[in-house]
């Protein structure tokens, strides 16, 4: 029966897009939501406040490079940062499954504390619920965040202009494959560590450098590919991506090859793209490369291809040919063929 929710509706692909466009977004039409960005920016007493929320259902709870707690805090810090905001306050809702070892919960809360402290934000409110065994996969976390958008900073898909250059802050595919490596049945031994990281410092450094940022987007569920496709569609502009310019470390490439996966669509948790006008490329790259989360910064493409109408992403392949990057439908499954 096609009338039930499938795993694919959460996969960051076309099914998820249809769920949002067809059922959820129409119920709440308003300007802030319609901007369709990682977070919303609203006016409060003369200040532009960024507000965002995200839920974390990762399994396993602990993985190379982090855990669900660190992921949850970083994810919301990053969503605020993608609005150009400086994060200030967080909330956390824990949905705990009966039977989760208290020691595990302790480790996760401690990594949430560390991640918030490192970013100089305070967790000011929250909620805790416990569900019956078998109803919760160990632990789910929802986090929400508030931040302030400094004056002069306006970041969003509507500011994209033809000619803008796309900068990526590092190699892709590490989070998704770090999780996949633990997956029972597909397990492989690898040195791959999740890239989960707080990007708010990177964005703050870019603001401090006076760079005119047109748009920022983190490349989480659905990877770099889905992020660029969504941005192109929202902004009604065409994007050109040079596949050879996108860094992928060898262990991630190897894992993707054996599972038949394309790194462009693999989830990241510490990667984002910045779109700036051409004259801002040098200062933006300098600001990013001077920051721990931007050391691998590189130019991977441009916005606006006059030969093409609105929306869509063209990829220049490694051998110089072109193809249209298409959003996968449900979710990507490892395959033999």
């Amino acid at each position: 029966p096609k009338d039930t929710v499938l795993l694919g509706h959460g996969g960051g692909g076309r099914l998820m897009q249809q769920l949002l466009e067809g059922l959820i977004l129409p119920a709440f039409r308003n300007p802030a939501l319609d901007r369709r960005h990682d977070g919303a920016v609203v006016e409060f007493g003369g200040e532009r406040v960024a507000f965002t929320t995200d839920s974390y259902v990762v399994h396993p709870l602990f993985f190379p490079g982090g855990d669900i707690g660190r992921l949850a805090v970083h994810g919301t810090l990053n969503d605020l940062a993608m609005c150009g905001a400086k994060p200030r306050y967080l909330s956390a809702g824990l949905i705990i499954e009966e039977g989760l070892p208290m020691a595990d919960l302790g480790r996760i809360v401690e990594s949430m504390r560390q991640a918030a402290a490192a970013a100089g934000v305070s967790l000011v409110t929250g909620d805790t619920k416990v569900v019956d065994r078998g109803k919760g996969d160990g632990l789910f976390i929802n986090t929400a965040g508030l931040g302030v958008v400094p004056p002069g900073v306006d970041v969003g898909p509507d500011r994209l202009r033809a000619g803008d250059v796309i900068i990526l802050n590092g190699d892709i595919g590490r989070h998704g494959m770090a999780i996949m490596a633990q997956r029972e049945g597909l397990a492989f031994e690898s040195t791959i560590v999740s890239d989960t990281a707080d990007l708010s410092g990177l964005v703050a450094a870019t603001v401090a450098a006076g760079v005119d940022m047109h748009c920022l987007r983190d490349c989480t569920r659905g990877g770099l590919g889905a992020s660029l496709i969504e941005l192109a569609e929202t902004a009604g502009l065409h994007i050109r991506l040079r596949e050879a310019a996108v860094p992928v470390v060898e262990p991630v490439r190897g894992a993707c090859e054996i599972l038949g996966l394309d790194p462009l669509y693999v989830a990241n948790e510490g990667r984002c793209v910045l779109m700036v006008p051409p004259h801002e490329v040098a200062p933006a790259l300098a600001a990013w490369r001077a920051h721990p989360e931007g050391r691998g910064a590189c130019v991977i493409g441009e916005v606006g291809d006059p030969r093409r109408g609105g929306g869509g992403v063209t990829v220049e392949s490694q051998i110089g040919t072109e193809r249209l990057l298409d959003l996968f439908s449900g979710e990507q499954l490892p395959r033999i063929c």
Binding site: L7, L186, L259
Partner: peptide, 18 residues
């Protein structure tokens, strides 16, 4: 009338293997 993903969503124990 359906696919294995819908069987999984309806509670079937369908597992992916390498």
């Amino acid at each position: 009338c359906q696919d294995l993903l819908s069987v999984k969503a309806a509670g079937g124990d369908v597992r992916i293997l390498y």
